[in-house]
Amino acid sequence: MEWNPMSDGAAMEKLTQVFRDVLDEPDLRLARDTTAADVDGWDSLAHIQLMVAVERAFGIKLTTGEIANLADVGELLDLVVARSGS
């Protein structure tokens, strides 16, 4: 995959907004290496809501494995960029 800073930046912005809305944390900031442990409220239940909200925002569908095994925000970002760009 080609590195495309513009689309990554836009996707990160959109992703951040989704996380802010779902977690009700208007000041939340995400980085590529952010994990669930770093974010207040990102527990296993919020994770389901986040994944559904991300799917809707980007018009994509995540697989069961992806939902279960996401390591950090960077991985999620790569997924949504790859899939919503195609």
Binding site: L45, H47, I48, Q49, V52, L62, T63, I67, A68
Partner: peptide, 15 residues
Amino acid sequence: DHRFWYHAKQPVSLE
């Protein structure tokens, strides 16, 4: 939504 049944035993899709 099967995915969320396997993942977290959700009885109904969020939708």
